[in-house]
């Protein structure tokens, strides 16, 4: 019973993506398991970010974008007719490479998505602000100045605010696009700690340029190269005994 493999949280089947004539992703089949941290590594322009943006259909806004293959969230096709894309984006929370606090107060940043989702109860707002900031490890630093401007926070704090903003929606999957690329080591470590704790609550997909980060902060790792999924496996295994030559070359610094 316990060994029964659970249905994956998210799954792509033969996902191919084009922007105009350029192929960005080739036939990617990858699953995101429940309560795991999946890292995606690879050199620049290997399709990591495109892959992430497929998961919450943010690429839909790009007019050149075309796709074949399926993406399933908890077994349901996210492009299916019964899937509401707005609801989908609430279930899949995204954090961007550069922290983008909206130019409002800390509190407003967190309550915005709730208000737009029709939750107007102030008590719920207050509870969510506190719980999500606690989850993101920012509560103690900002609890006395929730109404101050979000852009007055430091870069690391801003990124944790962006994380809290997403967590307030209780997403089932958390996707992070190089969330630490602009941060100092201490801020990076804090975010990695937060991800470790969050694992119990949601599945996490972490795109990163930093292979060390992937080895520290993930359970499984996928290696992307020029739009292809080269290899995916347990992080320990992939880093110590990669099956593919190209993975080994990348990890030992021969390119990328």
């Amino acid at each position: 019973m316990t060994e029964q493999p659970a249905k994956p949280m998210m799954e792509t089947r033969g996902l191919t993506v084009r922007f105009g004539n350029a192929v960005a992703l080739k036939n990617i089949s990858l699953e995101v398991r429940r309560n795991e941290r999946l890292a995606i590594i690879g050199p620049a322009r290997s399709g990591k970010t495109t892959f992430l943006r497929c998961l919450n259909r943010l690429n839909d806004f790009d007019h050149d974008y075309s796709r074949s293959g399926d993406i399933l969230l908890d077994g349901t096709d996210i492009h299916g007719p019964e899937m509401d894309v707005v609801a989908l984006r609430r279930r899949i929370g995204m954090v961007y490479a550069v922290p983008v606090p909206l130019p409002w107060s800390i509190r407003e940043n967190i309550t915005y998505a709730m208000r737009m989702a029709g939750i107007r109860n102030r008590r719920v707002h207050a509870e969510k602000v506190e719980s999500s900031l606690k989850l993101a490890g920012l509560w103690d630093e900002v609890k006395d100045r929730l109404d101050s401007h979000a852009q007055d926070l430091s870069g690391g704090q801003q990124q944790r605010l962006c994380l809290a903003r997403v967590l307030a929606l209780e997403p089932e999957v958390l996707i992070l696009d190089e969330p630490c690329s602009g941060l100092d080591p201490i801020s990076t470590a804090r975010i990695e700690d937060v991800l470790e704790e969050l694992k119990a609550r949601q599945s996490i997909v972490l795109v990163t340029n930093n292979t060390m980060q992937a080895s520290r902060a993930s359970d499984r790792t996928a290696f992307f190269l020029m739009g292809e999924l080269v290899e995916v496996g347990e992080t320990k295994q992939l880093f110590t005994a990669p099956r593919e030559e190209r993975t080994n070359d990348y990890l030992t610094g021969r390119f990328g």
């Binding site: 919450n56 943010l58 806004f61 707005v86 609801a87 989908l88 984006r89 609430r90 929370g93 995204m94 961007y96 550069v98 983008v100 909206l102 130019p103 915005y112 998505a113 737009m116 989702a117 962006c162 903003r165 997403v166 929606l169």
Partner: peptide, 19 residues
């Protein structure tokens, strides 16, 4: 990027434009 954030948080285009 403001628009992207708003879309990413599950807001519609109209909500994003307005708010």
């Amino acid at each position: 990027s403001f628009r992207e954030v708003s879309f990413g948080l599950g807001c519609t285009r109209w909500q994003t434009v307005l708010f």
